[in-house]
């Protein structure tokens, strides 16, 4: 391959990752800026975090968002897992093609359209906009992401494990609970995490489908961002980034520990 190409690879990596991380890093750094002017560094301070604590509107919005994310992610995980099982295990039923389409289309559908259609639906059935409607909306979009994650795991699962369970006398339902679900559990958890962050993140669909009293954090951030960049928003964003990073890093570490254990097991197996 030669030295030149390797150098090229290294440069691509450095450039790519700088591009990915520099903006976020700057945002975090400036959340600790003393000055209200976001672009002038005036010394380290946690003043904006203390400010946050007194901002009732933001704290309420954060609380709404957290509840929304927890509820919608959990329901979406159940529904999405069911959909994934339906599509990859109960392969023959009427409407299977329609269901596949309804799972995949929302993944790429512009959010503006999803939001608009859900809002018009809630108006048509006379359902007042509020926490319930935004929760329903988030479940509908997140469940598709969960379904795709779980389905890809189901697809790679060795089918003979389920055949073996049935061969040993387990009914299809018993097989699902004793063999299939325990084996796809990591994918179900990953699906839940994805649904949780999608809900935490969503601005457009929430703007369409929520009502008074249920303003979410992204909506709050959005309305303030439109007025200009403030260190207070930087502080909120930093907290959100910290929460998500801790979650992802923890998940990775747990995963790594499992891999280490597996490596140890394999050594044990080799020794007999």
């Amino acid at each position: 391959m030669g030295w030149r190409l390797t150098k090229f690879n290294l440069v691509s990596l450095i450039f790519g990752f700088t591009f990915l991380y520099l903006p976020i890093t700057l945002l975090v750094v400036y959340s600790f800026n003393e000055s209200r002017l976001v672009t002038v560094w005036a010394g380290f301070s946690t003043v904006w975090y203390r400010e946050l604590w007194h901002n009732r509107g933001l704290i309420d919005a954060a609380w709404v968002t957290l509840r929304l994310a927890l509820i919608s992610a959990s329901v979406a995980t159940v529904l999405g897992t069911m959909a994934a099982i339906a599509l990859s295990r109960y392969t023959r039923f009427r409407g299977r093609t329609l269901m596949t389409g309804m799972i995949y289309a929302p993944l790429v559908m512009p959010e503006v359209i999803t939001g608009l259609s859900l809002l018009l639906f809630f108006v048509a059935i006379n359902l007042d906009r509020g926490f319930l409607t935004v929760t329903l909306a988030h479940i509908s979009t997140s469940m598709c992401f969960v379904a795709v994650v779980v389905q890809s795991r189901l697809r790679s699962l060795d089918r003979s494990l389920e055949d073996a369970a049935m061969d040993l006398g387990a009914t299809p339902t018993a097989t699902l609970f004793h063999v299939t679900l325990p084996l796809i559990w990591p994918a179900v958890i990953a699906g839940w995490m994805l649904a949780f962050t999608l809900s935490l993140d969503d601005l457009v669909i929430a703007s369409f489908t929520t009502g008074p009293g249920s303003t979410t954090l992204p909506m709050k951030i959005y309305s303030q961002v439109r007025l200009g960049v403030t260190p207070e928003i930087n502080a909120v964003c930093t907290i959100l980034i910290a929460i998500v990073s801790v979650g992802v890093v923890a998940a990775t570490l747990i995963n790594r520990r499992r891999m280490v254990r597996q490596a140890r097991d394999e050594r044990l197996a080799a020794e007999g």
Partner: peptide
Amino acid sequence: LPFWTSFLIRVYAWIAI
């Protein structure tokens, strides 16, 4: 990792830049 952080935040970060 950045994909897990908020979309809105990532866009917002660019305004300041």
